[in-house]
Computed example of a mutant assay.
Amino acid sequence: MAATDFLETPQGRRLAYHKTEGAGPTIVFLGGLKSDMEGTKVVHLEAWAQARGQSFLRFDYSGHGESSGAFTKGCIGDWHQDTLAAVKALTDGPLIVVGSSMGGWQALLLAKVMPERIAGMVTIAAAPDFTEDGYWASFSDEQKAALDTVGHVELPSDYMEPYVITMRMIEDGRQNLVLRGALDLPFPVRFLQGTADTAVSTETAVRLLEHAAGPDMRLLLVKGADHRFSDEKCLRLIETAVLDVLGEA
């Protein structure tokens, strides 16, 4: 296994990453909330890219995996800064951006600031604006009061220990919403979504498809697939979607 490399960001954070050199466009994988770069989807896609001789980048946001910082200190804007730092420092030329869950939101934020670099995008259970439409919208009065007094609440997770959601994450999320204003995606986009996903609804996927503007956008709903979207069938669908936006399918 290749050793992990590290990047110092302009904000002073230390990001862990693995970069595979190869032909372009570079595939950049953006992971989900509290996920790391050792997940099933990203490791599978990296091996697939390596077999094709294609450039690939995976990294951990600050507060995730091997990168510096504490998760509870981070927020959407911090992880957007991390994404920008990694892309600018570690890649050249066109990109194929693959974003999973919160990484789908990060992919859309990246598209807003450097659309000229993106040759195609694939999202997997994209969760844009989830801090507002998911967390804040569902919080009880008691939870909102706790955010004001304690500064955080804990939410149960089906996949790991509880999520600690801070008031900073909520407030910062409001500065990074993508479903309230123009969202131009001037490149091929494939949105993948499982119908058995209990973390991101099919309604969210349809809302994103209807809200975004672009010449080549498609939503694939996979009956029975859950939020992990990582069984063999789903992994093959991710490969196919990447080939599709590359124009090779």
Score class of each variant (00 low, 15 high):
A2M: 13
P162M: 12
V28H: 07
P10F: 03
L221N: 09
E142P: 02
L147T: 08
T149F: 01
I124P: 08
C75L: 01
F71W: 07
V222L: 11
Q50E: 14
G12W: 04
R228Y: 00
Q143N: 01
M160H: 14
R228L: 06
R207I: 01
P94G: 04
E8C: 04
F56S: 06
L243D: 09
S201I: 10
V200K: 12
V153Q: 09
G22W: 00
S157A: 12
M37L: 13
A107E: 07
T91I: 13
A111N: 05
D36R: 09
M121C: 05
A146Y: 00
L155S: 06
Y17W: 10
T166K: 14
P162Y: 03
V178M: 08
F187C: 11
K223M: 10
Y17P: 05
L84H: 07
D226C: 05
L33Y: 08
H44V: 03
W79L: 09
V122W: 02
A212G: 09
M37H: 03
Q193P: 01
A199S: 11
L208V: 10
Q54H: 07
E154W: 09
P115S: 10
L179P: 07
R14F: 01
H44W: 10
K144S: 04
V222I: 11
G93I: 09
T20S: 15
Q81K: 13
R236H: 08
G247D: 04
H64D: 10
M1K: 11
G103D: 03
E38A: 15
G93C: 07
T83W: 00
L179W: 06
P25V: 14
A70K: 15
L30G: 01
G22H: 05
R190S: 04
A225M: 08
L90A: 09
